[in-house]
Simulated scan of single mutants.
Amino acid sequence: MENEPLVKNYDSDEQDVRRRLLADRTISEPNHDKDGQSTYSRSRSTPSGDEKDDSIDTVLDVPTKCVEQAKEVGKLVVQYVVDHTHLPHWLLDNEYLVSGHRPPMPSFNQCFASIFRIHTETVNIWTHLVGTLIFVIIFFYLVTRPSSEVPIEKKITFGLFFLGAITCLLFSTLYHTLSCHSQQVSKVFSKLDYCGISILIIASFIPWIYYGFYCEFGTKIAYLLITALLGSGCIIASMWDKFATPEYRTCRALLFMAFGLFGFVPTCHYVLLFGFKYAFTTGAAQWLVVMALLYITGACLYAARIPERLAPGYFDIWFQSHQIFHIFVVAAACVHYYGLCVLSMHQPNFNDCRKGIAPAISNVVNSVFN
């Protein structure tokens, strides 16, 4: 019943268009009079006042109809969204996002179709979906390079980083797409989303520790083991059902921030080992600092729910804290990749490592036997 006025409006519009087309066709038909001159030519040469008014009205009606059609398309795009107060308890997350929420849609087809519609999760989906595609392209470009151009060890270490980034961004995209399906599906993909963050942090540490402590085998293994243990702890915490609830938003942010800040320990060790100047030029430590600032800033905005906390209802669709956090995550991963490229270009080879180790061993042997 609600659609009847809309249908009537469309019918009346079609009738108006048909009447105008018939009128134009009548005017344009070349009817010959007794003198052999067509009225068509006379009508084009000397149009009457009524014809001028009709043509002006037709021209003025075009933008009006375009605006009306755009409004109708907009209604079709957003007509299915609901306010925050109409959501079930398992979809309640951010009370400062007042409107534009998807209701429960127990169909995977509907959930994936919502990717192309406007709602509170649209930007969250597309930011990490685009990031996933970017890293997939770079990953395949890297692994398909010949070994003479990209060594096998670089393919492995960088490949682990790319796989971690792709896993994190893909899990996040799937969660924001399917979170409205059902409570059970939302819970499963929420856990995968948080596990993906831990995987990305672990994958980010691996190539930096590998190249940063290239000749320090024992130090390298120790830091990699500590990273794996801390990451496993975060993954286990992510499996806890209450971890995904809104009440633990700040705890989630602090946990992942603490895990990420562990990177300052090997960074400080690297600075002490090789010197400040070397670490922040050849060692590309400055890019680690930029990456950390991006992650921390995004996590703080996410935990504080800024800017939507300051103006509830004004950031429901665009520029909410979660969207900013997503953009910062992708930017931080890109910055980290650039820093790894700089660091790997200046890596020593195994011969240089042996040259550095041999004098140290001889000095130890001489001190023991002399």
Rank of each mutant, 00 (worst) to 15 (best):
Y80H: 02
G74P: 03
D57C: 06
V82K: 07
T64F: 12
V77H: 09
V81K: 09
D83C: 11
E68P: 07
V59N: 07
E72L: 01
K75C: 14
V82R: 07
H84L: 14
Q69Y: 07
P63N: 01
V82C: 08
E72K: 09
T64Y: 13
L60D: 13
V81L: 00
L76H: 00
L76D: 08
V59Q: 14
L76S: 03
V78P: 02
I56A: 06
P63C: 13
H84E: 11
K65P: 00
V59A: 14
L60N: 06
K71L: 11
E72W: 03
S55D: 05
P63M: 06
E72Q: 10
S55Y: 05
D54N: 15
K75I: 06
Y80K: 06
T58M: 11
D57P: 09
V78W: 02
T58S: 13
G74S: 08
E68C: 14
K71F: 03
C66S: 07
V77A: 13
E68M: 14
D61Q: 10
V82D: 03
D54M: 07
G74C: 01
K71W: 02
P63D: 04
V78M: 12
V62G: 12
V81A: 14
K71E: 10
V81W: 00
K65C: 00
V73T: 04
D57N: 11
T58Q: 12
K75T: 01
Y80G: 00
G74R: 00
V67F: 00
D61R: 06
A70T: 10
T64I: 14
K75D: 01
T64G: 04
Q69T: 10
D57L: 15
D83Y: 04
C66P: 01
V62A: 11
V78N: 06
Y80M: 00
D54I: 04
E68R: 09
T58N: 06
L76Y: 08
P63A: 13
V78I: 10
E68W: 04
V82I: 05
Q79H: 12
Y80E: 02
E72G: 00
D57A: 12
D83P: 03
V73M: 01
Q69E: 10
E68N: 03
V59Y: 04
T64D: 09
H84Y: 15
V81R: 02
T64H: 08
E72D: 04
Q79I: 11
D54L: 15
V81N: 07
V67P: 00
Y80S: 02
E68A: 10
D57E: 03
D83R: 11
K65N: 05
V77C: 05
V67I: 11
S55L: 12
T58D: 15
P63G: 10
C66A: 09
V59C: 14
D53A: 06
K75V: 10
K65W: 10
K65Y: 12
D83V: 08
